[in-house]
Amino acid sequence: MKIYKIETVQHLNATIEECWDFFSSPKNLQTITPNDMSFEIQDFDGKRMYPGQIITYTLKPLFGIKINWVTIITVSQENQYFIDEQRFGPYALWHHKHFFEPAENGGTKMTDIVHYAIPFGFLGRIMNKLVVNKKINGIFDFRRTKIEELFNSKV
């Protein structure tokens, strides 16, 4: 199985506590997900993120096909990092790490690292090259822009 990696780094003009407050709430996932994906949380307990928390949602990531996705927060260290993993969904592997640390010039450095794998062997590798990798990068581009608006556009 081929494992792919995407890493993004973004500076936020906000304290780590402000960043953590936003990103540790599953309710804010919809805000940073492109509208055309029809992201909708189906179930979560309404609590701030904690290890063992399960979040279920539906979305339409490709070709308007609706899928169910279940993630679990496997690790969470307040104001530092958390990891979400797909338990059920379209990927053979989805492991997403989120890190928050003080930036040298003030504010917060946020780093996202995703490791993922596509099922179906050779066909999955072709799909990744033609469609999936571009889609994931497009989602992160959208998130970068949305996060810039939310945290870095304050006058």
Rank of each mutant, 00 (worst) to 15 (best):
P90A: 06
I65C: 06
P26S: 08
G46V: 05
L130G: 08
T71S: 15
G107V: 01
M1E: 06
I139V: 14
I139Q: 07
K5M: 12
V75D: 15
N128R: 07
K146S: 07
G106I: 05
I65W: 11
N79F: 09
F142T: 09
L29V: 00
M1Q: 05
I67H: 07
E18C: 10
M127C: 10
N133H: 13
I113K: 08
F140A: 03
T33Q: 02
D141T: 07
Q30L: 07
K5L: 12
L93G: 07
G138T: 04
Q10R: 08
M127T: 01
D45N: 15
K66G: 01
E85R: 13
G106V: 01
T15K: 04
D45W: 12
E104S: 14
Q80D: 13
A103L: 02
Q77L: 15
L59D: 01
I126T: 09
S24M: 08
D84L: 08
F122V: 09
R48T: 14
F63N: 11
H11M: 03
G89K: 03
K146F: 05
V75C: 09
P119K: 00
W69Q: 09
L12H: 08
R48M: 10
P102A: 11
S153Q: 10
Y116L: 06
D112R: 06
Y91D: 05
I139K: 08
I55G: 05
I55P: 01
A117C: 09
T145M: 11
I65T: 04
K60S: 13
W20L: 08
V114T: 05
T74E: 12
W69V: 00
T33L: 00
